[in-house]
């Protein structure tokens, strides 16, 4: 898996490409930890190129959300395929981590949050 990184104003867009699984989950957590160190705490996880996720990948998303929320930021997901969304539904992770209908909506949610305080912005 590789993670492509973009910055749109104060929001970081992470685009994992491939599989977010036990062998790669730590990479996502490490990326988010580095962003928080640099005071980027609003992250959009664009899952459009995410082919597969397992419970370790889900755990990495939950951990990333906790890390970002602990710094007054947050994580929003977008672009997930139906099977990926189903994993979040089954575990009810989607009640804690919001899913945006589009990348633009996700950016809007996070930029509004950033405007109200927390992180770079």
């Amino acid at each position: 898996m590789e993670i492509k990184v973009e910055v749109d104003n104060n929001v970081v867009i992470l685009r994992p490409v491939g599989s977010l699984v036990a062998s790669t989950a730590e990479f996502l957590k490490a990326q988010v930890a580095k962003l928080v160190e640099k005071n980027y705490v609003h992250v959009l996880l664009d899952m459009a190129k995410l082919e597969f996720i397992d419970s370790s990948g889900l755990g990495a998303c939950i951990a990333a959300n906790k890390t970002l929320a602990g710094s007054e930021g947050g994580l929003v997901c977008t672009g997930a395929s139906e099977p990926v969304r189903k994993i979040f539904r089954i575990t009810r992770a989607d009640q804690k981590i919001p899913f945006a209908d589009s990348r633009l909506d996700g950016l809007r949610i996070l930029q509004d949050k950033a405007f109200k305080g927390g992180g770079k912005g």
Partner: peptide, 10 residues
Amino acid sequence: DASDPDGAEG
């Protein structure tokens, strides 16, 4: 469940 702020990561 993962919707709990302190919910399990694994």
